[in-house]
């Protein structure tokens, strides 16, 4: 199903590096993707592969010693990498919202929930406190917090882990942004509450055309929610495409290994299939393909040069010399 809309957000050849004493960590190294209005893009990948840093980079939230050293982030045509802090502050939490992996990055531990939520509304909207509070209460109800009125006056530490996550989601929903970057937003949520949140998200995308970038390791959520998926490994997108294609016919050996590790694909109690070897340190990436040392398909050519991006099928991208399916078919 080809989408014709112009991309709402386009990330082009983004490079974000951490210049540390031990060397340069290329956390994000040439990432390109785009999302259209109403589209849900899943971003999955190895722990430490640069998913969160990609999200931070879009919003200009990379801290020292990190720096965007290359590429562009185009939001409705405007390059945010070149935008000033004042402009970014206008956009953050308003047109583009991020739900952080750690809810305590959103929440201030010493302020009551209502104070924080009312602030978040009034920073961008001219409404009185009563109206802002009403919006806050509605948002809490939508993410399944019981007794939202009473809970508004609580402090973050009085909430369970999943409740804090939901408050962070509620804050992101407050101003009906055009793009939401959700970083592992439902990791601590049970399936019923997760379904409630995903329902609200689907509704939002469908009704208001909000685009979603859903960063997660949970392939089941990606398969249920996303239209397209990008798979990251060591700072690069190694594979991307429509969800059905990527999950049913993975081309990159890393993607295939990832899918093979899902517990429900393994026999109960047996050792889970795991990708051999360890995530390489960003300071000591091997030459050529970063996945080479762990890859069952690797050949000599993989050591020479990092595989360039190819287009194996319409709508799909891949960085690999010896794709999974092709190997098995031959």
């Amino acid at each position: 199903m080809a989408r014709v809309e112009v991309p709402l957000l386009r990330v082009e050849q983004l490079q974000t590096h951490f210049l540390t004493q031990a060397g340069v960590a290329r956390a994000v190294d040439g990432v390109t993707f785009e999302v259209a209005p109403g589209e849900v893009l899943g971003l999955v990948g190895e722990s430490g592969s640069g998913k969160s840093v990609t999200g931070f980079s879009i919003l200009g939230l990379v801290d020292e010693p990190g720096r965007i050293v290359g590429g562009r982030v185009l939001f409705e045509g405007e390059n945010l990498v070149a935008a000033g802090e004042a402009r970014l502050r206008q956009l953050r939490g308003n047109r583009i919202a991020m739900i952080f992996q750690d809810p305590m990055m959103t929440l201030n531990p010493v302020l009551r929930i209502d104070t924080q939520m009312i602030e978040a509304v009034r920073a961008h909207r001219r409404v009185d406190r009563a109206e802002a509070r009403r919006r806050a209460r509605d948002a809490l109800g939508r993410v399944g917090i019981p007794a939202p009125e009473e809970r508004l006056s609580a402090y973050p530490h009085q909430f369970s882990g999943g409740m804090r996550q939901r408050v962070a989601i509620a804050i992101a929903l407050l101003n009906e942004p055009r793009v939401i970057i959700a970083d592992e937003p439902t990791t601590a949520l049970d399936v019923t509450i997760q379904a409630q949140i995903l329902y609200e998200m689907q509704k939002l995308c469908g009704e208001t055309g909000t685009a979603l970038i859903w960063i997660t390791h949970d392939l089941a959520v990606v398969s249920g929610l996303a239209d397209r998926v990008c798979v990251m490994y060591a700072g690069r997108i190694v594979e991307s495409g429509p969800v059905d294609a990527v999950l049913d016919r993975p081309l990159h050996p890393y993607t295939a290994g990832l899918i093979g590790s899902v517990p429900s694909r393994n026999r109960r109690g047996a050792r889970l299939a795991q990708i051999p070897g360890m995530t390489p340190s960003l300071f000591a990436l091997p030459s050529g393909c970063a996945f080479r040392a762990r890859c069952p398909n690797a050949g000599e050519d993989c050591a020479r040069e990092a595989p360039p991006e190819s287009v194996p099928e319409v709508g799909r991208t891949l960085r690999c010399y010896h794709p999974w399916q092709a190997e098995r078919a031959s």
């Binding site: 917090i145 019981p146 019923t192 398969s223």
Partner: peptide, 26 residues
């Protein structure tokens, strides 16, 4: 709870909101 388990094989599901009121430990 068991009925809601998401599986990697179920694509573009229509998620359902929680039915009935979620009770409060207060």
């Amino acid at each position: 709870l068991l009925a809601e388990v998401p599986r990697i094989d179920s694509r573009r599901r229509v998620f359902k909101p929680v039915e009935g009121e979620i009770p409060s430990p207060l």
